[in-house]
Amino acid sequence: MAHNFKTDLTVDWCPGCGDFGIVTSITQALTELNLDPRGVVAVSGIGCSGKTPHYINIAGAHTLHGRSIPYATGVKLSNPKLKVIVTGGDGDMLSIGAGHFVAEGRRNSGLTIMVYDNEVYGLTKGQAAPTMSLGEQTKSLTRANIFGKLNPIALALSAGYSMVARGFSFDMKQLKEIIKTAINHEGSSVIDILQPCPTYNNINTMEWYKQRVYKLEDDKSWNPIVTPEDDAKTSGEKFASAMTKALEWGDRIPTGIFYQNKAIPPFTKRLAKNVPNYLEVTPAEQRVSTSDGYTVVDPKETFADKILM
């Protein structure tokens, strides 16, 4: 029987929350990719979004607020055979965890990162998240937001992520396909997911988004993929058009894949150049002792450079 990727836990998100659609998209993607459930791991931070791993029937770590990326990176780099998906809120990923978000762009470890973009801090009762627009006042705010809006797509592109996309939690068909592409993508991907929070965000509602979103892939000439064969000019142009699309917000909001660069080697392959057998027998799988239970290391051999004869 096919593995059921949903757990039977009671989901305690508010009725109408966009998070439901995201979890469904994830589990459908996992099912359609027919992945070994023991070969995929879910890691999250803290927030409403952070509860996601408990609802997916694969190994999951619900870690610290803002720290999902480094925990997930540790899982991935110690066992590069695993697929690692990371879920977190916009506050989690782009405020408290922003340093890790940027650093992972440079590493390109091979994580599938989903930002639940609801423009608010859901679990702490609706404060402004970094994605909320300047001057906006959602119902739980006492005053209008006096911070500028952070652009997750533009940030992910400039941080160096090799795949950057946007989904909408009420378009599960498209979101599921994006997630599938991202999981199969060798490097790290960021999916900015427009996720209405009916409880605290009365501005960016499902209807508000439905009136604005459009799909990049509907334009048949849209080609965001950079391959190793592309020359610098072509890949530069693809990056530039992704950036241009990233800046579009307001009456029309693009969704779909903005950029996918298959030419950037993932961090795991870079590490493999220095660490013998790193990809074949991963750090998680290596033997540390011989059959007699003692270290596999011969100190006189390994530390010969420290011996004074």
């Binding site: 890691v43 770590a61 870690t63 610290l64 720290r67 480094p70 925990y71 997930a72 990176t73 540790g74 899982v75 991935k76 780099l77 110690s78 066992n79 695993l82 991963t282 750090p283 998680a284 799988e285």
Partner: peptide, 10 residues
């Protein structure tokens, strides 16, 4: 955090 993540893979 990264070292902890690695620890849980063994």
């Amino acid at each position: 955090a990264m070292a902890s993540g690695a620890a849980i893979t063994g």
